[in-house]
Amino acid sequence: MLDTDWSDSWRGAFRIELRAEAIGLACHGWPVLPGTFPTTPQSGGKTWTGPVPVHADWADRIGAHPNEVAEWWAKPYSLLVATGKVLDAVEVSDTLGKRAARLLRATGHPAPIVATPDGRWLFLTTVADRFPDRLATSGEVRWHGEGGWVPLPPTPYQHGVVHWRVKPDVWGWRLPAADAVHSVLVRALDQTDDREVRGQQLVAASAAA
């Protein structure tokens, strides 16, 4: 969709939507930051692999007033939120994300969830001071904490737009406790491993028959 549709009129309309979202999030205390677009050259001539902060001193701009945020988005920027201050994010594959989302619904834990066009899910939580080894060593999970950032809707990618799987207003803008979400993700990861083992056992049994 976005590979060819980068007309000035499209950019203008999309900039207005991004600006409105940024102001709204800032009003709820979220530390939003302007990020690059897919067509924005990255520093050092690097290939665009995702939005990064526009300002080199972005860490000093965390917690800006909504009025300042409104001024930033006078230009067409994507929407990022800094992690490690107000919120953290845990990034997983869409397969693991769907399983974890079902478990969260079953246990009644609220959690805003973001999905990116490249098949990644981001679970937003309160700030954590540690991360379970089970998740950190899995190779499937990434913790975005102090010094990091993640994209928020409706940030554009080269092949789509970042979107909410679960909007924060559905849960009254409450962020779930990090350890509660980590626990659910561990369970989801264990379920994935169990299914893979059972699948391998079935294949082995079929081959031996």
Rank of each mutant, 00 (worst) to 15 (best):
L25W: 13
W58C: 04
H55P: 02
R19C: 07
V81E: 01
T39H: 11
F14L: 10
P41C: 07
V52S: 04
R15Q: 10
K75W: 11
H28F: 06
G35F: 05
V52P: 03
S43V: 05
D57C: 01
P31D: 12
E21Y: 04
A74D: 14
A70F: 11
A22R: 06
K75R: 10
G44C: 05
N67S: 15
V54S: 02
A59D: 11
V54Y: 14
G63S: 13
H55I: 03
W48S: 10
A22F: 12
T83I: 12
V32R: 05
V54L: 08
L25H: 08
T40H: 08
H28M: 07
N67P: 02
K75V: 02
G29Q: 07
A82T: 09
I62L: 15
R19A: 15
T36L: 03
H55A: 08
T49C: 06
R15N: 05
N67L: 15
H65V: 12
L18F: 00
T40R: 04
T36H: 04
V81A: 15
G45Y: 05
F37A: 06
T47W: 01
E21W: 07
P34K: 06
H55N: 10
S78G: 15
A22Y: 12
V81W: 03
A82L: 11
K75T: 04
E68P: 02
N67T: 14
G35W: 00
L87A: 15
R19K: 09
A59I: 15
G44Q: 05
G24A: 04
G35I: 05
D60S: 15
R15D: 00
T83W: 07
A56I: 14
W58Q: 09
A59N: 10
P41I: 07
W58K: 11
L25Q: 09
E68N: 12
H65Q: 15
D60C: 09
V32W: 03
T39K: 08
C27K: 12
L33S: 01
V86H: 11
A64D: 13
L18Y: 00
L79G: 09
R61M: 14
F14H: 15
K46A: 13
P51E: 03
V54M: 06
L18V: 06
I23R: 01
T49W: 01
G35Q: 01
A82W: 06
